[in-house]
């Protein structure tokens, strides 16, 4: 199990979500994807969100990133409340890795273009050196720099997506099922990479997954979601001892062992 990096100071809240509701559509077509979700993640911690498809776990991440138009409640990052429209400075602190590496890279852009453009948008000027550094960080190396997505395997694509998320040097990384589209041996490589990056860069993770064992490996704390609501927040230790209190969590646990 991965301990959060040692910190002398008292735990500081890095991401706080309070009473968050997200819905799609209006009037009679309104669908509530998330209802009154609240949780807090401290600096350097790793927090898991588990649940089945349609439980709203990914929607929470998208709402934090400002990718869903309709939400209510309060989100604060590094104890500062987030505006309805995200400022550019927000994206320097929070970044996201998407689920499907086959869909999250532009099919006509080379790795170099993807990373170069991201760095340019964040106002970096020594782009060439930084692209090489980023590729090294995610274990790809320079020979992948000018390849296009179709010349990369799933694991390599996900590494590029992680490099892109790391480009602005964020403090929080939102991981939306980063390994569910990958083979198990590749999943192990990506999870190890994420573990290393977290200690190296002092990152805070919020990880969504349907796989309890992946969340158990990566996180210290997790929230179980069902039908848009958080039914239970518990320590991973509790999960390991199979001491979940909510019946739904027990059901999930039983199904994944």
């Amino acid at each position: 199990m991965v301990r959060s990096p040692k910190c002398e100071c008292a735990p500081v809240s890095m991401l706080n979500v309070d009473n968050l509701s997200v819905w799609f559509g209006n009037g009679r077509d309104r669908v509530d994807a998330v209802r009154n979700a609240s949780f807090n993640v401290n600096r350097g911690a790793s927090f898991g969100l588990v649940g089945e498809s349609g439980s709203g776990k990914s929607t929470i991440l998208r709402a934090v990133m400002g990718l869903t138009p309709n939400w209510s409640g309060a989100i604060s990052v590094d104890t500062k409340p987030v505006d309805k429209t995200r400022q550019k400075s927000f994206y320097k602190v929070v970044q996201m890795v998407f689920q499907d590496p086959y869909a999250s890279l532009h099919p006509r852009h080379s790795v170099d273009q993807v990373l170069g453009e991201t760095l340019y948008l964040h106002g970096f000027r020594d782009i060439d050196a930084r692209v090489v550094k980023l590729l090294d960080d995610v274990g790809l190396g320079g020979k992948f720099r000018f390849r296009y997505p179709h010349q990369l395997s799933g694991g390599q694509r996900q590494r590029v997506a992680i490099a892109r998320a790391l480009a602005p040097k964020p403090s929080i990384l939102l991981l939306d099922e980063p390994t569910s589209a990958l083979d198990v041996s590749v999943q192990a490589e990506i999870l190890n990479l994420l573990t290393d990056l977290r200690t190296e860069h002092g990152l805070t993770y919020i990880m969504v997954s349907h796989d309890l064992s992946v969340v158990g490996h990566m996180c210290e704390q997790l929230a179980v979601m069902k039908d848009g609501e958080i039914v239970e927040i518990m320590e991973v230790e509790t999960l390991r001892k199979a001491q979940a209190s909510h019946p739904y969590s027990q059901e999930l646990l039983a199904a994944s062992i």
């Binding site: 199990m1 991965v2 198990v184 041996s185 999943q187 192990a188 999870l191 190890n192 573990t195 309890l212 064992s213 992946v214 158990g216 490996h217 990566m218 999960l239 390991r240 994944s256 062992i257």
Partner: peptide
Amino acid sequence: SLPRLDAPCDKLQ
């Protein structure tokens, strides 16, 4: 290479 709930480890094989 599979992570396991009953056998935590720092790094996966």
